[in-house]
């Protein structure tokens, strides 16, 4: 790791410089909501934010993308070779990428994910936690890898961590913007991180996987009673990996595209098989499967999105509390 310092009045120049690496995606605020979008000008970017509704996952794993083109029965791959910069990613969302890596880069590799992630420069950013965050419990409060550069907000400067050769090259290309760190900068960095640490609620997820398995149907019924099977909790989740695959035809009826699209285990088709049998017919079964996937298999980064964006207020921490009671 290399440590540097970037004064806040230099951040705009730094922003301008990273465009030479690739298309920049950053947190952009519109109608009071944060989304990771293409950002041309620094004035569009909001670096002070708590969470985006849709995680930055979509930059690497688009919500909907053509994966193949076909003509008759011949298939051709469609691969995105754009270089990208993903700026302003919080610890939890970086750790979520690491979890997705484990799935998508496990042999056989998913080339669509792989091609994108390897061409994407990830610039992390320290966060502003709120009461919905529980990243301490999921061990995703702080990350030491999964990024090229990390910016820690320390008041009037960013304490910068550089983790990869690629990241180093980017900082060296704009050498004049960065300064060396001294003892005082280090102290301020530690202080800022401590303050951030204090802001996150502590939670213990000890034996939660077994408790999810042990609780019976009636337990899950209580929490799924308010569930509308809308799927929002999974669509805003940074670690959800499920996708659906389908074909669309073009005008000539012979060629077309094979698409994949984010899917949700809270929807009916997820557990359906050809003869009409559904392995997760009831909402309580789907809720338990979701909790099992997230907390049982520990693929949760404690970002709080599933609770914040649930239209009916189903609170993952409330379920955790009840599981342990």
């Amino acid at each position: 790791m290399k440590f540097l310092k970037l004064k806040k009045d230099q951040i705009e120049d730094f922003f301008d410089s990273i465009h030479s690496f690739g298309i920049v995606y950053a947190p952009v605020k519109s109608d009071g909501k944060i989304s990771f979008r293409r950002a041309q000008n620094f004035s569009d970017v909001s670096l002070e934010y708590t969470r985006s509704q849709i995680p930055p996952k979509h930059v690497i794993l688009p919500m909907e993308e053509p994966i193949l083109k076909f003509r008759e029965e011949e298939y051709f791959e469609v691969v995105d070779d754009e270089n990208k910069v993903l700026l302003g990613v919080h610890h939890c969302d970086i750790i979520a990428f690491k979890m997705l890596d484990e799935v998508y880069l496990q042999p056989p590799k998913d080339i669509y994910y792989h091609e994108r992630i390897k061409r994407t420069l990830i610039i992390g950013l320290s966060c502003i936690p709120d009461n919905y965050c529980f990243c301490k419990a999921t061990n995703s409060f702080y990350t030491s890898d999964g990024f090229d550069i990390f910016l820690h907000d320390c008041g009037d400067f960013y304490f910068v961590r550089v983790a990869t050769p690629r990241g180093l090259k980017v900082t060296e290309n704009s050498k004049n913007l960065f300064e060396k760190v001294d003892e005082k900068d280090m102290e301020l960095f530690v202080k800022a991180e401590k303050e951030r640490f204090e802001r996150v609620k502590g939670k213990n997820l000890w034996m939660i996987g077994d408790l999810i398995e042990l609780r019976d149907e009636n337990f899950w019924k209580i929490f799924s009673e308010r569930c509308l099977n809308c799927g929002n909790c999974t669509l805003v989740c940074p670690t959800c990996q499920c996708f659906e695959v389908y074909d669309e035809l073009e005008e000539d009826l012979k060629s077309g595209n094979r698409f994949r699209r984010w899917d949700s285990c809270m929807l009916r088709a997820h557990g359906l098989v050809a003869d009409g049998h559904n392995f997760r017919e009831r909402t309580e079964e789907r809720l338990r499967n979701r909790l099992s996937c997230k907390l049982g298999e520990m693929r949760c980064v404690g970002c709080g999105r599933c609770t914040v964006y649930c239209p009916t207020g189903i609170d993952i921490l409330e379920i955790v509390r009840a599981l342990k009671e």
């Binding site: 909501k33 989304s35 509704q53 849709i54 919500m63 909907e64 509308l228 099977n229 809308c230 799927g231 929002n232 669509l235 805003v236 699209r261 984010w262 949700s264 929807l267 009916r268 088709a269 239209p311």
Partner: peptide
Amino acid sequence: DYPVCLECKLKD
């Protein structure tokens, strides 16, 4: 057989 919500969320 999925709800409007899926398309709505995917529009952010």
